[in-house]
Nucleic acid binder design. Structure first.
Length: 115
DNA sequence: ATAATGACGTCGG
DNA sequence: TCCGACGCCATTA
């Protein structure tokens, strides 16, 4: 969905391309307590790869629920672990016991219905 | 045109 | 389960 003027996550003053908007819109739809991997998002969007999604998140992730985007093994982006943890606790995201990794089997969201 | 880079993923040891 | 090597894909240098 392309907004005519900045009012969403891209309200930073700069224009974003279509791919970026699409990735961000998917991230925004991930329900609380659920996650998607970079690869999942790339596949869902249908172009680019995990690294492209990573680039988008690095540049624009600040305006969306970035902690709901994790690596395929369930670990949040390196350097964001501490902040991500508090969000997981607040949303009761399923975690693997005794680790900082999300339980992908439980928390992975396919983009379909919210459950 | 070639090489390096990056909020990644998969495979083998 | 942990780790390193290699693969991927678009962007930048």
């Amino acid at each position: 969905m392309v907004e005519p003027h900045p009012s969403g996550p891209e309200a930073d003053g700069e224009a974003v391309d279509e791919y970026t908007e699409e990735v961000l819109s998917v991230v925004e739809r991930i329900p609380p307590g659920r996650v998607m991997s970079y690869g999942d998002i790339a596949e869902y969007v249908g172009r680019g790869g995990p690294r492209q999604v990573g680039s988008v998140m690095s540049r624009w992730g600040g305006g969306v629920p970035w902690w709901r985007v994790v690596r395929a093994d369930g670990r949040p982006a390196e350097g964001h672990l501490v902040r991500a943890r508090s969000h997981y606790a607040a949303e009761a995201t399923p975690m693997r016991p005794g680790s900082d990794r999300v339980d992908m089997r439980e928390a992975r969201w396919d983009g379909g219905s919210e459950d």
